[in-house]
């Protein structure tokens, strides 16, 4: 692989340090700052993946960290993502909590034409949580309601009712793979399903345009400890890159986000990993 040297789309990193509904350990509002520091200092000698920081990139702050109003956050994140797209740049949103994802997705009017591929420990399909539909536990439900086809990978925590809402009353997590054929379509591979079946069953029929959202708790806490709600038995970094390779093989990345870094729980590993993922996504854009 050749390190990217400006041959790809220029990138706009949209920092969205939104933190209003973190369930357990607070601090993901400091995520963008920690990632920015790592991104600026990425060692270019990544011999395994030949990925370094993109040659043409800008960093914009969508809103101040103190902003906790969901409507204002959505408006500001959407505006910056829209401006990036209008300028021919790839928008990569840097959270902040997962609630920023539906704010970014709101700029695509043709929701049915943009598949959302989610890496996460949690399904995030709740209709509402703790009194609000704009909780980070509801992010994918909002995307689904907009009409985006969903592909959920590596999930290992969900409420049965939220699965039934999207995948039907017979939804059974023990099958490892949940499928919804009605529009919008949805696929969910559990962690063990991903381990035993590989990613391909969830990608059959996947559309050509893809938005990727990575909640860092998709990864195993041994490689990404800096998250607010750690869950055991996550993906390794290399498993995640392999799955991303499969997702983007022959498809177009229209945008992406990396969310839920909690620097207070991190020793630097998770922030660096997040920066590498963003550089990797920029390379594929």
């Amino acid at each position: 692989m050749t390190p990217m040297a400006g041959a790809h789309r220029p990138v706009t990193f949209v920092a969205a340090p939104y933190e209003a509904t973190a369930s357990f350990v607070a601090g993901c509002g400091f995520g963008p700052d920690a990632i920015a520091e790592r991104l600026a200092g990425l060692d270019p000698n990544d011999a395994c993946h030949a990925v370094e920081a993109p040659a043409d990139w800008t960093w914009v702050e969508a809103h101040p960290r103190t902003l906790c109003d969901p409507a204002a956050m959505r408006r500001e994140v959407s505006r910056h993502v829209r401006e990036a797209l209008a300028a021919g740049r790839l928008p990569l949103v840097v959270g902040g909590e997962h609630t920023v994802t539906p704010a970014a997705l709101a700029v695509w009017d043709d929701a049915a034409g943009v598949t959302v591929v989610q890496f996460d420990a949690h399904a995030d399909l709740r209709a509402d949580y703790e009194g609000t539909p704009w909780n980070h536990a509801c992010a994918m439900r909002r995307a689904f309601e907009r009409g985006h086809p969903l592909v959920q990978l590596g999930i290992r925590s969900a409420l049965h009712e939220e699965l039934q809402d999207v995948y039907g009353p017979a939804a059974d997590g023990s099958s490892g793979l949940l499928m919804r054929e009605a529009t919008p379509t949805a696929r969910l591979l559990t962690r063990s399903g991903l381990r035993s079946r590989g990613v391909e069953p969830a990608l059959r029929g996947l559309g050509e345009r893809v938005y990727v959202t990575i909640d860092l708790d998709a990864l195993d806490p041994s490689c990404a400890p800096g998250v607010g709600t750690p869950e055991p038995d996550g993906l390794s970094y290399l498993e995640l890159l392999d799955a991303l390779d499969a997702v983007l093989d022959g498809r177009t990345l229209v945008g992406a986000d990396v969310v839920e870094l909690c620097p207070a729980r991190d020793d630097g590993r998770t922030a660096l990993l997040a920066a590498r993922l963003l550089a990797w996504l920029a390379d594929r854009g």
Partner: peptide, 16 residues
Amino acid sequence: AASTQVETYDLELGRD
């Protein structure tokens, strides 16, 4: 305290 942040449904077993 941690269990209050864990869903009661065991996704891998399909049991609550």
